[in-house]
Amino acid sequence: MNVQAKPVAAPAAVSTPGQGAKRPVPVIPQDSRLRKIAAEVLPPLLILAVLLAVWEFAGRQPGATLPAPSQVWTQSYDLIVNPFYDNGGLDKGLFWHLSASLTRVFMGFSIAAVVGIATGLLIGTSTFAMRGLDPIFQVLRTIPPLAWLPLSLAAFREAQPSAIFVIFITSVWPIIINTSVGVRNVPQDYRNVAAVIRLRGPAYFLKVVLPAAAPYIFTGLRIGIGLSWLAIIAAEMLIGGVGIGFFVWDAWNSSNLTDIIVALVYVGLVGFALDRLVALVGRLVTRGTMAN
């Protein structure tokens, strides 16, 4: 550092440790990496094992209505080990069902992201737009996803666009609301800085508002993708075709309970992965914005 102190008459006896002979650096014992990983991974594995054991026990009781894990393993062995088979028609591996569902989610969610962020920016900036649109949105967002399905089937007359519309209408609300809150909450400090350097219009929007609102926008996107995944399963049960929702419904109709359980495990894992993916993208895009 650059301390500009004039030389003062130094006090007579000042010891200056660390100036002469190098002081030995104490060795701090470090836990091994393996230990840390084990501490993270072992507890969930242990709990999982306990839960599976309880389930196995319950499933083996006489009169049990649901299969035990061991039965799932034996009866749905083909489904578990080979997610990529394709026997034509609807007889496909889980990978194909999941990818069909993910494609729908991807399309609906992409439209929702674009429309939601744009609308949110509008509502956040314009008081007129907020007063006009907000009450309508507050009512519309409480409508359950599946309630939109009959209407969208009537409008589009086809399964695929109807499902995509349901995804869109489910995930767009949290994106709109969070984006508009983010825009409204741009700190006064940042507004002052922009005012002093006369940053206005689109440049102000792009360089200050959007980055400041980015963490809010990503919170909206993350809630949106979660809701999309919830909605697609239900929608596919009704519209049919290839897709994980239809697979579950089809398995129920042919009484393959073990197949349903395998499918649900996949649904859970994919939903988890989607959530983490959006969170990761958010972290990369917003970089330092959150940590301040």
Binding site: D189, Y190, N192, V193, A195, V196, I197, R198, V208, P211, A212, A214, T286, R287, G288, T289, A291, N292
Partner: peptide, 19 residues
């Protein structure tokens, strides 16, 4: 009238843009 760069401000809480 209105803010401008001819009167630059050093704000109390630095007001740097964190991103």
């Amino acid at each position: 009238s209105g803010p401008g760069p001819d009167r630059a401000v050093v704000f109390q809480n630095h007001s740097l843009l964190p991103w």
